[in-house]
Design a protein around this nucleic acid. Structure first.
Length: 580
RNA sequence: GCUCCGGUGGUGUAGUUGGUUAACAUACCCGCCUGUCACGUGGGAGAUCGCGGGUUCAAGUCCCGUCCGGAGCGCCA
């Protein structure tokens, strides 16, 4: 007899039926003469009862947690006083007639049963979890996360298909492109000494699909970047990649926020309000000190540059900007010191402060604060004023980091999903190390045509048609309108210090494509792992990836990366140098 | 590459100013138990406290080094 239904699907209307269940023993309770088995499959738990007179009683007595068994029996309603209201199947139980052990199991290294009966799983260290990932993946939390991820992807396909997008696959073995992140290299056997690179994104392929007239493309694409890992970064990660022809920035933004709303509706039953806020880069940096601000709380930065200009406090008098944060509450010296460390980590020179208590400012730099300032900032009794002064970017980012830390510490972050778009990014930023301009997004991003006249005279002020999609303080997507004219693309390469020869060698195929009549086009890529992690309420994308890598980039199940045979190296013309 | 935090039975934790046999919960094994649902109950086994060195009469505890893991900085077009 084969399985008739999932354990978790058992309901009252099955009462009286013969069923066959197959699954894992979540828990076994032996009352002496009577045995209960909570049988588990991906849909949930069902209670199996084994009576002492049943022929399978001795088999049931032998069974242990995580054994895989098949149970044949009949469903019956439980007496009213024995209904388990915590389980969806709690009104019924299966009286076992036959039990067959399909596989015995070692005792699991950590408990996995609690989540399945609706409780919190006890905390287990991530190292232990990743080392035993198969066991870990049995827990309900990960079942839920991976199914949510699937639902998100399924919703993406439904939505984009209905809007005329087609999914096209692009190569994983491709060419190394200069700059950007470090490439993962794959040696060529047919041409020893030559290498493929794994794509950092399908960027150039999708642009060429636009030139080829496909008009609307998308792909759930794996991307590879050989950089250090973080809670929200893996060396191989998944993008929702998208590109459209004959569109404006606003078209892309509007379509993508509809997509986001559709996904939330389909997966979580939520209805976010559209449109999402669109804030300029300058505005979010000045108000939140971040290009990916968390809008779930206020605590905005305020500009007080003028109040200190030319004043007696030398450190502030000549500063490019002075920014202030009004903190609800009196912070201790120790707390301020910790926050100063946070500010300094972003390059701020320091963190000045004063407390407003007993009707006056005291402590820190209280005596240097202009008399009118507290009123201007709305500073009231029992609050702390924090200040950073210096070059614009380090100042706002320093205080922005403090804002974020305070949001967490003071519990200001409200639950929910706060989306926004950040627009009007600068096209270029100054690279101190290389002493030249470099792109902020990527070298194919179109300048805002209104700023084109500044390109040679004042490149730093040129805005880009680039936009980031931000959710709860996390960059979940980014895109741009691309350059579709060969002459402008060549001009950009020159500005970025890429010689015509180098451009031809590395991007010749793109320039060539652009010279065959390219439509105006643009697109976006979402960090799918991050997006799903937010929807699942997880801090780390490792919780929404079945087999993630740890902080050191190791895949803990298989032990990758690992050495390979000398013969394998020889076949691709490589030899490993002894460690330097 | 750098900074910070952590490492104690299988798992999760406690362990005070250094002081007897390293504690607790849970899991595990055995006994008893017919309506449990984290069953109950009695018993048992299980840890050279990540590793190495140092200080000390005495180190889980203090110091140095090292390994492993996590958070962040740099990096991430």
């Amino acid at each position: 007899m084969r399985r008739t239904l999932y354990c978790g699907e058992l309901r009252e209307h099955h009462a009286g039926q013969k069923v066959v269940l197959e699954g894992w023993v979540n828990r076994r309770r032996n009352l002496g003469g009577l045995i209960f088995i909570d049988l588990r499959d991906r849909e949930g738990l069902a209670q199996v009862v084994v009576n002492p007179e049943a022929s399978c009683f001795s088999e049931a007595d032998r069974v242990r947690a995580e054994w895989v068994i098949r149970v044949e029996g009949s469903v019956r309603l439980r007496p009213a006083d024995q209904v388990n209201t915590k389980l969806a199947t709690g009104a019924v139980e299966v009286i076992a007639e036959r039990i067959e052990v399909l596989a015995e199991a070692k005792t699991p290294p950590f408990p996995i049963d609690a989540g399945w009966r609706g409780e919190d799983d006890p905390h287990v260290g991530e190292e232990v979890r990743l080392r035993n990932r198969v066991v870990d993946l049995r827990r309900r939390r990960l079942h839920h996360n991976l199914r949510l991820r699937h639902k998100v992807i399924a919703a993406i396909y439904r939505f984009l298909d209905a809007r005329g997008f087609i999914s096209v696959e692009t190569p994983y073995l491709t060419r190394s492109t200069p700059e950007g992140a470090r490439d993962f290299l794959v040696p060529s056997r047919l041409e020893p000494g030559h290498f493929y690179a794994l794509p950092q994104s399908p960027q150039l392929f999708k642009q060429m699909l636009m030139v080829a007239g496909y008009d609307r493309y998308f792909q759930i694409a794996r991307c590879f970047r050989d950089e250090d890992l973080r809670a929200d970064r893996q060396p191989d990660f998944t993008q929702l990649d998208m590109e459209m022809s004959f569109v404006t920035q606003e078209d892309i933004i509007a379509l993508n926020e509809e997509l986001a709303a559709f996904i939330l509706r389909e997966t979580l039953g939520q209805e976010p309000t559209l449109p999402f806020p669109r804030l300029t880069y300058a505005e979010v940096m000045n108000r939140y000190g971040s290009d990916k601000p968390d809008l779930r709380f206020g605590l905005e930065l305020q500009d007080v540059t003028e109040a200190f200009k030319g004043g007696e406090f030398r450190a502030f008098a000549g500063a490019e900007v002075v920014k202030a944060l009004v903190v609800p509450g009196l912070l201790s010296r120790r707390e301020i010191e910790e926050l100063e460390t946070t500010a300094k980590s972003k390059g701020a020179a320091g963190l000045a402060w004063a407390r407003f208590e007993n009707g006056a400012l005291s402590g820190g730099i209280a005596r240097y604060i202009p008399p009118h300032l507290p009123e201007q900032l709305g500073l009231t009794q029992g609050q702390t004023l924090l200040l950073v002064a210096g070059p614009w970017r380090k100042t706002v980012e320093g205080l922005g980091a403090v804002r974020l830390e305070l949001g967490r510490r003071l519990g200001l972050i409200k639950p929910g999903f706060k989306f926004l778009w950040v627009v009007d990014f600068p096209l270029l930023e100054w690279d101190e190390e290389a002493s030249r301009w470099t792109y902020m997004h990527h070298p194919f991003t179109s300048p805002n045509l209104e700023d084109l006249h500044l390109l040679d005279t004042d490149p730093g002020r040129v805005r880009a048609y680039a936009y980031d999609f931000v959710l709860n303080g996390s960059e979940i997507g980014g895109g741009s309108i691309r350059i579709h004219r060969r002459d402008l693309q060549e001009r950009m390469f020159t500005l970025l210090g890429i010689s015509p020869e180098e451009a031809q060698q590395k991007f010749g195929f793109l320039l060539e494509a652009l010279s065959y009549g390219a439509p105006p086009h643009g697109g976006i890529a979402w960090g799918l792992d991050r997006f799903v992690a937010h929807l699942a309420g997880e801090e780390s994308i490792r919780e929404v990836i079945a087999f993630p890598k740890n902080k050191e980039g190791k895949e803990t199940l298989t032990g990758a990366p690992a050495p390979v045979d000398e013969a394998q190296l020889a076949a691709v013309g490589l030899a490993v140098r002894s460690k330097v």
